[in-house]
Design a protein around this nucleic acid. Structure first.
Lengths: 211, 211
DNA sequence: TTGCATATCTATGTATACAATCGTATGCAG
DNA sequence: CTGCATACGATTGTATACATAGATATGCAA
C-alpha cells in the first residue's frame, strides 16, 4: 500500500533532505510533492510508525536518536543478524548462495574510497542475506531496524583497514552458509556486527558530534 | 499518535470481532465507531502496517497466517525472548525484579483452568520482562511479533501438565535474572519458548483446524 | 517595563464532496 | 450454454472546506 508520495518522502528523509529541527508541515509537503494534504498525512503517519519522524507537540519533525538509542538498536541488530545468518545456513537455496557469491565478488572490485557505493553494496549484501533466510518475520524486523538508523551514514566501512576485514568476514560467512553450518554462520555474523559496533563506538568517542 | 478509534478498532480486531473474510469497508467502520472516513482510514492504515489486516485487492480484511507463518514468527520470537532475558539479567533494576516476583506470585495463585486469565497474566509477565531490558528496540520488536499472533489464542498454557512447568521455568528465569546471569537467563527463556512451540506443533498436528 | 489577559493567526483534526477504479452483473453473440 | 464486452454500482483515493486547538503577538494595567 506504499503510495508514490510515501516513497518520495521516505527517500528524502533517509537522504537527510530535511533538518532535524525543521517542522515538516503538511502545507510545505503538499507544495513540495504536488499532492493534497490527505496523502501527505498518510505518508507522514507511515513514517512516524516506521520511527523515521516523530511528533513534537503538534509538529512532525525528523526523528533523531541519542547515542544510547543507536547503540541499543545496533545491539538488537547484532542479535537478529546472528539469527539470520544461522537460518540462512539452514534455508538458503542454491540461487541464494550464488547471488551472495556474486555480490561478494562485486564488492571485491569496488573502489575502497567510494564510501556511498561501498555502503550501498554492503546493504545489498545484507538484504540478500536476510532474504536467504526465507523468514518473513526476520526480514521485516531487520528492515525495520536498518531503516531507523540508515540516516546515520557514519558507516564503519571506510574506517582504516576495515574493508578487507569485512570482505574476509563475508567470505567466511558464505563458506559457513555454503556448508550449511548454522552455528558457525551465526558466530561469524555476530562477531562481524560486534566489531562494527565497536568501531562505531570508537569513532563516536573520538568525535561525538559525528554520529 | 494513537487515536481513540485506532485503539477501539485494534482491540476489536485482536478480540476477533471480525471474521477473516469479512471486508472491513470504511463505510461499515464509520457507522460502527461514529467517526468519519478520515480517522477510520488512518486507523486501518496503522493496523495494516502492524500486520493485523491486509489489503486483498481493494478491500481490507483481517490478516490470517498460515501454520508456516505462525511458526516462523514464533521462531523469531524465541530468538528475541532469549535476547531479552539475557539483557534483563544485565539491566533489570530492583524494581523490575520485584515486579516480576510479584507477578509470578500472583500466577501461582491462579485457577489452572481459567485460560483467559492465565493468558492475560502470562502476557503481563512477558511484557514486564521485556521492559526490564530497558531496551526500546527489543521491546518494540517483541510487541510487534506478539501482536501479530495474539489472535491465535490457542495458548499452550492449558495443555495438560504445562502450567506447573511454566511456573517452574519462570522461577528459574527470575533466579537467573536475580543473580545477574545473562547466559543462564537466556538459556532458560529459549528452552521455555522452544517447549511452548513444540507443544503448539503437537496440538496442531493433532488437530490442524485449531490454530 | 513586566505581567497577564485576550485576540489572532497558523497548523492540524475532521467531515464531506468529488474522482477514479475495481469488481460484478448483464446482455449479446457465437 | 459459454465467452466476452460493456455498463453499472460500490468502494476506495484525493481534494477541499470547515472546526479546533495551540502558539504567538498585542494591548492594557500595575
Amino acid at each position: 500500500m506504499t503510495t508514490p508520495i510515501h516513497q518520495q518522502l521516505r527517500d528524502d528523509v533517509l537522504a537527510s533532505v530535511f533538518a532535524p529541527d525543521e517542522p515538516l508541515t503538511e502545507a510545505k509537503l503538499t507544495a513540495r510533492y504536488g499532492a493534497s494534504r490527505t496523502p501527505v498525512r498518510e505518508a507522514l503517519q507511515r513514517l512516524e510508525q516506521d520511527g523515521l519522524v516523530e511528533r513534537r507537540g503538534k509538529a512532525v519533525v525528523i526523528r533523531t536518536h541519542s547515542a544510547e538509542e543507536i547503540i541499543d538498536i545496533y545491539e538488537s541488530r547484532i542479535i537478529l543478524e546472528q539469527a539470520a545468518a544461522s537460518k540462512a545456513a539452514l534455508k538458503a537455496t542454491a540461487l541464494d548462495k550464488s547471488s551472495l557469491d556474486a555480490l561478494l565478488l562485486k564488492m571485491r572490485g569496488l573502489d575502497i574510497n567510494d564510501g556511498p557505493t561501498l555502503a550501498a553494496t554492503n546493504r545489498a549484501f545484507h538484504t540478500q542475506l536476510w532474504h536467504a533466510t526465507h523468514s518473513p518475520s526476520l526480514i521485516s524486523l531487520l528492515e525495520r531496524l536498518d531503516q531507523q538508523v540508515r540516516r546515520y551514514t557514519l558507516t564503519t566501512l571506510t574506517y582504516p583497514g576495515r574493508w578487507p576485514v569485512v570482505l574476509a568476514d563475508y567470505a567466511e560467512l558464505l563458506a559457513a552458509i555454503g556448508e550449511n553450518n548454522p552455528e558457525l554462520a551465526g558466530q561469524v555474523a555476530a562477531r562481524h556486527m560486534s566489531e562494527a559496533l565497536a568501531i562505531r563506538l570508537k569513532m563516536y568517542a573520538a568525535d561525538p558530534t559525528t554520529l
